[in-house]
């Protein structure tokens, strides 16, 4: 048996039903994408903070490395003076026939020379800071790129996160809070001493 052919009105209704179903499917899909995407977009708002912490890290290590260098250079200067004095004394001892003492002093000189090389090795080992800073710079650039892409996603989703500072919950949120505190309100020893003094500590 042949099915009855649909008339124009029936065909129109069928098309409307199809369009309706399609619209519901699209709406549902958009909702799903928004639900999945929202946490990602919200996390992306913290990317500049992450980048800022990374930059801080590079600065902190640079400061630390500079201090180690300053101290190492002072030690190198002292070493040079001590070695020069030891050489002069060893020479004088030999002049006065004190070869044994001169020999012992030359053994000390050999140890000092070895230490001098080690101090140079300390300096060159500090070059890790340059490599680290370069990598951090690249990571910050990558984070910026990711953030830009996620901002585009926000536009697509048409869903702007609140930005009220309580975006991230759970462990990640706690970590951000701790990072912020360690940077913004970390107490210097002077401030701690002031408080200790107020409480009677000497």
């Amino acid at each position: 048996m042949q099915p009855h052919p649909m008339n124009t009105e029936q065909r129109t209704q069928a098309i409307y039903r199809e369009i309706g179903a399609l619209a519901r499917f699209v709406e549902h899909a958009m909702q799903t994408v928004a639900e999945i995407g929202r946490p990602v977009v919200e996390s992306s708002l913290e990317l500049p903070t992450v980048a800022s912490h990374l930059t801080d890290l590079a600065k902190m290590t640079e400061q630390g490395v500079m201090e180690v260098m300053r101290l190492t250079e002072l030690m190198q200067e002292d070493h040079a003076t001590v070695m020069s004095e030891c050489r002069a004394i060893a020479g004088a001892l030999r002049t006065f026939g004190q070869d044994d003492l001169a020999g012992r002093l030359e053994q000390v000189l050999a140890i000092l020379k070895q230490d001098e090389r080690r101090l140079t090795d300390v300096m060159t080992a500090l070059s890790f800071q340059d490599l680290m800073a370069q990598r951090i710079k690249k990571l910050v650039a990558i984070l910026e790129d990711v953030r830009e892409k996620l901002v585009k996603l926000v536009v697509v989703l048409g869903d702007q996160p609140s930005g009220n500072g309580e975006r991230l919950q759970g462990r990640v949120g706690e970590l951000f809070k701790e990072l912020g505190q360690s940077r913004d309100s970390a107490m210097k020893q002077e401030a701690a001493d002031e408080i200790l003094t107020k409480f009677g500590f000497e």
């Binding site: 490395v65 190492t72 140079t120 300096m123 500090l126 340059d130």
Partner: peptide, 13 residues
Amino acid sequence: DDMATMRRIVKNV
């Protein structure tokens, strides 16, 4: 070198 630390290291060596 653009990094002060590296300039100092190279100079020291």
